[in-house]
């Protein structure tokens, strides 16, 4: 029973939202937590979906780094090239955001629906 599979409330499933947005023709990116060290707030496998207007659903960190992930996701939506982001104390100067809990996370950001473009 993975804790990443249960959504908070019915109708708030991030991957279903991602499919709906992609079908509506919205340009979107999907961010996934792929690795965590220390006390990271969201488990590996957590998703955040972002569209080209900066609207988003889901979470990868409980609010600490979402802003930076969204900014990077807008680049990914434009370039159609996936990228890996790393956040944490060690990267504070590089990203100017960090996890207040002291943990570190790695996030994979990929374009959605690339094949249809």
């Amino acid at each position: 029973m993975s804790e990443t599979t249960a959504s908070l409330l019915p109708g708030q499933d991030v991957l279903e939202t991602a499919e709906t947005w992609a079908r509506e023709g919205r340009l979107t990116a999907l961010a996934t937590v792929i690795e965590t060290w220390g006390s990271a707030p969201r488990p590996v496998g957590s998703h955040l979906v972002i569209d080209s207007d900066g609207q988003f659903e889901g979470s990868v960190s409980g609010g600490c780094v979402e802003g930076a992930v969204i900014t990077e996701a807008l680049d990914v939506i434009e370039s159609r090239v996936p990228k890996i982001l790393e956040f944490g104390v060690a990267d504070e100067t590089a990203w100017r955001v960090g996890l207040s809990c002291g943990g570190r996370i790695r996030v994979y950001v990929e374009p959605l629906g690339g094949a249809t473009l």
């Binding site: 599979t5 991957l15 279903e16 499919e19 999907l30 959605l112 094949a115």
Partner: peptide, 14 residues
């Protein structure tokens, strides 16, 4: 991710 793959994933989950 390809939308068709995302659809297949969501169908299996549903």
């Amino acid at each position: 991710m390809d939308v068709t793959l995302l659809q297949e994933l969501n169908q299996a989950r549903a």
